[in-house]
Design a protein around this nucleic acid. Structure first.
Lengths: 246, 246
DNA sequence: CGACGTATTGACTCGGCTCAAAACCTGTGG
DNA sequence: CCACAGGTTTTGAGCCGAGTCAATACGTCG
């Protein structure tokens, strides 16, 4: 499971860290410190990285693949808090929470992750002002996503939430037709959007009637983004090319 | 409207600032700097402090009263993101967002607020490491509340959300009976919990059947917290005396 | 080809929303 | 002290969106 970290991979790790918001604007020697402590690992689908209330040893940066963050109740029900992909990080909030994870994390599409010790981040955030500021920026980002989530759950119906989800997968500046692949199982998209898969299936049909999209398996063809945003975004306080929510 | 800030009020402002998480653990001269820049003002119900996308000049600390944070869509629908009271602050997230508010704020119960220039906070966060760390702590707090919100909306039904709301108004360590006053209009509690007031009314009746509480107007008598938490918290991943969500 | 997991469809139930009417409060002025 | 006006809350009837459970279709991999 554990990958040997070759020097070229170390290189990639470094360049990913460079672009990582957590370290943006920090000195090269901090970046080097992190790049050195960084371990690349490949994970298969369904692998659980950690659970809510687990002691937090690592935080992770995603090189590729998809991860879901979730919480579980005693009676077995699950909320999907977010799904993350390349360039995003998770687990880092534990530095502020007595080193305990406040959510679980699970691989949903085969992924390569870089993991770093929470203790290193904690120490660095405490000592290095720029890193603390970047961490603030990351937190603000997360908050924006969560605020959107709350608004979406209270104001948009199932079809609108799906439309919104599709829009956020698109490049907002393409003119004309967009074709995209759904990034993971439809049942997970459903959970991510706070609905059951049966509802997802029916709501997607409704969305097809209201807009002009067509769906074959995991492939979605979107002739015009405006048609979707017209239907979807009226029930949301963001305006279309909703920044930072992708 | 604007209150003269007498020296005794300046004193109160200082002591409130002292306990404020945003400034916890910072030097006295920073606190003094903030206390000096701080303006006390009293506001009546329904006063709008700022709207989403307004340029952010001030952030606020609540001395007393209740505030709601909200977002509004073009077609007039509103989401209540949170309601805040004594000791909590809001608007401060604007320092990370190009000095623009990402939500509106409105007085819901007559309030005394201390307001401080965003520019001062921004400058201080950029220059002072301890303040940046406290700000991180504040953000983590907000995130926890929001995560709870999302979980609540997806997993709990209307009655359970009300039960959960009541529990968070109680002191979790009182043995025996608790009596409490609802802090603001029932219609606002409803909105806060993501439901219509009619639904709130009916769901409260259902909660009365399932637990042993009684309600007269804004007064709620709760013979036992366990009866509510047993009914409510099974659908949530927090366990009862849910920390930090009050 | 068959088997397994994923996705869709159908029939039914139920929670929460809508619209409208009644009941309840609270404050005001006669 | 009562009557009345305004807002807030509750109740009623009906509807609709989403959940449930079960059966069927689809896809993919051995």
């Amino acid at each position: 499971m554990r990958m040997a970290v070759s020097s070229s991979e170390q290189q990639t790790a470094f360049s990913l860290l460079e672009r990582q918001s957590l370290l943006q604007g920090t000195d090269d020697n901090i970046k080097a410190l992190f790049a050195n402590a960084c371990q690349a690992q490949e994970y298969e689908r369904d692998k659980i990285l950690f659970l809510q209330d687990d002691p937090a040893e690592w935080f992770y940066i995603i090189a590729s693949g998809w991860i879901k963050l979730f919480r579980e109740t005693m009676d077995g029900h699950e909320t999907v808090l977010d799904t993350l992909t390349t360039g995003q990080s998770f687990g880092e909030i534990a530095v502020l929470e007595d080193d305990t994870h406040t959510y679980g994390a699970c691989i949903v599409e085969k992924a390569v992750l870089y993991r770093l010790p929470i203790s290193l981040l904690k120490k660095t955030v405490e000592e290095n002002h720029k890193v603390a500021l970047s961490m603030l920026q990351t937190m603000a980002q997360h908050r924006k996503r969560q605020t959107h989530e709350i608004e979406s759950l209270t104001l948009q119906n199932a079809s609108q939430r799906i439309g919104c989800f599709l829009l956020r997968l698109c490049d907002p500046f393409t003119e004309g037709e967009t074709t995209l692949q759904l990034p993971y199982d439809k049942s997970l998209i459903a959970a991510r959007l706070g609905m059951k898969s049966e509802t997802f299936s029916r709501a997607l049909n409704k969305l097809k009637e209201h807009t002009d999209i067509s769906v074959q398996g995991a492939k979605v063809i979107i002739p015009s983004l405006d048609a979707i945003s017209g239907y979807t975004c009226s029930a949301c306080s963001n305006e279309f090319p909703c920044e930072d929510l992708h």
